[in-house]
Amino acid sequence: MSKDELEEVNWERIMHLKLYSRYRNSAGQRVRTALNLKGVDYTYVGVGSNGTISQEDYNRDVNPQGLIPTLSVDGELVTQSTALIEFIEETFDGSSLFPDDPLMRARSRAFAQVIACEMHPINVGRVKAHLVAEHGQNDADWERWYDHWAHHGYETLEKQLEARTTKTAFAFDDKPTVADLYLIPQLYNARVFNTDVSAYPLLNEIDERCRALEAFDKAMPKNQPDFPGEGAI
């Protein structure tokens, strides 16, 4: 290629992206939605019994921590959904995943971090398994424990939305941003764990609006290649 031809190449479209995930994986759902909102093509690689790579092979060859998602960028591996969303934002054109206003951008990040750091960790399978195996909790004990902390998180999120001086169509903007990317999978978890979130009207309003968008719908568990079928959650 000549120098002029090289300058005209859209390098972001040359990247080969592979997303290692699982149909019901909140962190992976965030990243899938971000890629969809940016209109970025990627190859989905399901991890686990219904996927195309076993958990054992994934742990050995992709991510020794054993957690998902992982994004392969031309063979280079990047983990952690927050880092992946920032990479997607910084690499690809399209509508920004963050509000333009600096204050709203900070609030959107704070909202997302309540979910990522304080809510999501308590509903991952390995935490429940440890509590049951090592601390003698049964399912009912775990559900009470989970509900206590889940509602603490949802109350915090609802109050953050109530505190907005200007109501926006989505969490902190009139377009979906990082706050919405984190909220929708977490509310999906609420349905999986039978957590009653009817007391949070603003969260539910945003959830309904987001799930009506193609980018969010395509990222839902039921629309992933490794979804096991009717009746699965």
Rank of each mutant, 00 (worst) to 15 (best):
Q29N: 09
I53K: 12
F111V: 11
V62P: 05
R109D: 09
L161P: 04
Q224A: 13
G229Q: 09
T52E: 14
H120Q: 15
S2T: 14
Y146Q: 14
G28L: 02
P121H: 11
A27T: 04
N123Y: 11
P102Y: 05
M15A: 08
A150Q: 06
C117N: 14
A34I: 08
R211Q: 00
P176M: 11
N36W: 06
E76W: 08
V178E: 10
L213G: 04
S95N: 14
R126M: 10
R164T: 09
L67I: 12
Q113K: 12
N10D: 15
E143W: 05
S95V: 10
F87C: 00
P121M: 09
T165Y: 04
P69F: 14
Y188L: 01
L35S: 03
D180T: 11
R22T: 07
R144M: 14
A199L: 01
V114K: 07
S198A: 13
A27Q: 08
K175G: 06
G125E: 11
E89S: 05
L71T: 01
N36V: 03
V132D: 11
D196W: 10
V124D: 07
F193S: 00
I115N: 09
E162S: 11
R60E: 15
V192E: 03
R22F: 11
E230Y: 14
Y23Q: 00
F172H: 06
K175M: 04
K18L: 04
V47D: 08
G66P: 06
L97S: 08
N25I: 00
D196P: 05
A34V: 02
L131M: 15
E90S: 06
D41H: 10
P121V: 09
I85G: 00
E7R: 07
T91M: 01
A133W: 00
P102I: 11
N25D: 15
P176D: 12
G28E: 11
D174H: 15
D100G: 04
K159M: 02
V62G: 08
R105N: 12
T168I: 02
N204Y: 05
R22S: 12
W145G: 09
I206E: 00
Y20D: 04
A199T: 01
T195A: 00
E86S: 03
F193T: 04
D100M: 07
R109K: 15
F216T: 06
G51T: 05
I53L: 11
L183D: 07
D141A: 02
A83E: 13
A140S: 13
Q186T: 06
Y42W: 05
H16C: 10
